[in-house]
Design a protein around this nucleic acid. Sequence first.
DNA 1: TATTGTTATACTCTATAACTATA
DNA 2: TATAGTTATAGAGTATAACAATA
Lengths: 166, 166
Amino acid sequence: MLGAMTAMAPRRERPDLSFLLDHTSLVLRSRMTAALGEIGLTPRMHCVLVHALEQERTQIQLAEIGDMDKTTMVVTVDALEEAGLAERRPSSTDRRARIIAVTDAGARLARRSQEIVDRVHAEALDALPATERKAFLRALERLVGDHLAAPVEAPRPVRRAREVVR
Amino acid sequence: MLGAMTAMAPRRERPDLSFLLDHTSLVLRSRMTAALGEIGLTPRMHCVLVHALEQERTQIQLAEIGDMDKTTMVVTVDALEEAGLAERRPSSTDRRARIIAVTDAGARLARRSQEIVDRVHAEALDALPATERKAFLRALERLVGDHLAAPVEAPRPVRRAREVVR
DNA sequence: TATTGTTATACTCTATAACTATA
DNA sequence: TATAGTTATAGAGTATAACAATA
């Protein structure tokens, strides 16, 4: 990880927003991953389960919601199927597409994992006084909706064709 | 990246802190990387420059501050030397250690890069009303100092010895 | 014996490219 | 022609292992 962007002394006058956001985000993620890991889920599996439960969705739609590549979705759904938590079903309207159907076991586990997610979030937020907590969340939501809505696109390196193995 | 941890509907009642922190952190980082890239620096190079300027520091000390591995520090210092921004000098007290000395060009560039860092931070924070901004920063600092201080250590996979090539 | 800095490289993660089936 | 899903793998990023010099 990358640490302090700003020299030590002027921290108070120029708060190191990069460090603060990176650090809190990383630590929260590590807690979330550890907590969900106890019931055999990754954050990604949880994300797919919850949104597949809401309504009938295809892999592409779930990939969009979870901000994953479709190829990452393939391995995530593979893991969910292997664990007996979800199944691929043909879409009735598009024979190319697969609906991700959550099994009963998947639905039960999703309830537990959502409790875990809420608990991990609550434990973090409980460290803040109520007023500050509200302003904190409002601020984050404002940033996500506004100035920090979309990442700057970095130019991606062109990749050579893949080696064909017979 | 990973997106929403929480189903769509209950977002208002159960704010998705993971999503909010991940998203803001990622977008800010992309902006920072793009902005520093315009003067030929990575966030890591900036970080090392700034802290090497503050006082005499060895690679290990700079790695600690930047939360980088010492091997990552090697390539970062390589890049700084190649760009003529810093030099490795033998420590006068420990012949194993190298002091990272910032050149005049490095010092000039560090002033500019710190301005860039401050500007990118300010642009984000300017999106917030003054009161909210203060509470936001206080909250982040409280979390970093308290509940979200340290990541949960994930068990690292054991790695086999490296192949010896003669 | 432990630590600084270094090199080589193992491993993870993510996404691109290419492909099949279908729209 | 374009899209959903799949497979294979390229490439970036990062950290471990091993080592030389020194403490």
